[in-house]
Amino acid sequence: MIQLLRIELYKIFKRPRTYISFVIAAAITFVIQLAMITDGKTFMNFAMQGINEQFEIQGNIINGYFVTHIILQSLLVHIPLLVALVAGDSLAGEANQGTLRLLLTKPISRSKLVFVKFLSSFIYTVILIIWLAIVSLLLSILIFGKGDMINLKSETFIIILKNDVLWRYMAAFAFAVLAMTTIASMAMLLSAFADNSIGPIISTMGIVVVLAILSNLEIPLFNYIKPYLFTTHMIGWKGFFDDPVPLGAIGRSAMVLVCYTTGFIACTIFYFNRKDITS
């Protein structure tokens, strides 16, 4: 099992494509950081016009913590693609390359192979999120400095004191790993159905985008299904920047994500064990 996992990770990290994700994650971060350097003030004035009418806020508003928070807003849109790039390729890519044939003529159980592929996608996700934490949080702090963090929500304005922020980011990144693992497991399930990796990667993105729109639409009909969509819960990390932190809701979201992940893996194993390898 460990052996198999080592081989999977070796294959992932030996492949140039894997590092594209890291470059993209860094690029998204740099673009937002650059935008904040040049246009941060204008952006803040626009966003805070409601507040500024009545209150005067002084100090380093556009600090590293604030910028990181802006960067993380892209998490729902961009990082799933980067995760799908690897997880969606895990089974379909091997089928497409023809290596799945060879792999499965080796004495390995298919369930174990699926599980190891999931584990390696998970490890990749963790490393990607750690990388994101480094380029977004660490770099933003280096560029913009530390300070009390402003969290602008649609109807609330929150200030978090600077020595109360870091743990929230740690928790948020941990939650992001969980959310992205759900994406990874879904991409892997789609990957099991396909014999080329473009299909599962695009389908994963399609599902995420459509469900995210449903999660955000203010239509009463959808309100009934919203609590059951994983996209509704993927943004649970934002809860850590609320005051007070809605631990109950975050816990429920985490549970939903864990259930989805487990379900996706179980389906993948069930299907893949019965799949005829004709690629």
């Binding site: 966003a47 602008l152 929500k153 649609s154 919203k226 943004i235 934002k238 809860g239 609320d242 809701a249």
Partner: peptide
């Protein structure tokens, strides 16, 4: 908050 800037977590 001006529209388009907020991405709220549902609980909120």
């Amino acid at each position: 908050l001006p529209n388009g800037l907020a991405m709220d977590y549902n609980d909120e």
